[in-house]
């Protein structure tokens, strides 16, 4: 290799810089998110573990089912039926987005663009949600 004495140290420095955030953060921060669960409801549409892992896939399946396949009723593992609606079904129970959705999303740094269009509550009075609950500018996930 030409100029190995420059290239190899430079590569090491580069890799070290790239990996620095991982080493820096490891073990310093206990990963724990405190979300406020609905007080008047015992069960979500599926078990807690399923929701924790798959809520985004479920929402993705729902949006295709409703918009493209004309299916609006979701039947869960226990045979209970729900309307496939983020605003009407999810947000009716999880009424405070900033105390449920955002707690986790903010912590892991995802910014779902659902809220660019979907209302944060079926009771919402104006098209623009109140500032405190307004999603941060910009989309992406």
């Amino acid at each position: 290799m030409y100029n190995a004495k420059y290239i190899i140290p430079a590569m090491i420095v580069f890799i070290a810089l790239m990996l620095f955030p991982f080493f820096y953060g490891t073990g310093t921060h206990k990963y724990e998110v405190q979300v406020e669960l609905p007080k008047d409801q015992k069960e979500c549409i599926e078990a807690k573990e399923v929701m924790r892992e798959r809520h985004m896939q479920i929402l993705d399946e729902w949006r295709n089912a409703v918009v493209r396949d004309e299916v609006r009723i979701y039947t869960n593992a226990k045979g209970k039926k729900f309307s496939m609606s983020l605003t009407d079904t999810c947000m009716t129970c999880h009424a405070e987005k900033d105390k449920f959705c955002d707690r986790c999303h903010n912590d892991v740094g995802v910014n779902p663009y659902c809220w660019d269009c979907h209302n944060i509550s079926p009771e919402q009075k104006t098209p623009i949600p109140p500032a405190a609950e307004a999603p941060a500018e910009g989309g992406g996930h």
Binding site: S85, T87, N119, K125, T126
Partner: peptide, 12 residues
């Protein structure tokens, strides 16, 4: 505001 329907999404 008076014509807003919370059960239907807006667009982006």
């Amino acid at each position: 505001d008076e014509d807003f329907n919370p059960n239907y999404p807006t667009r982006t």
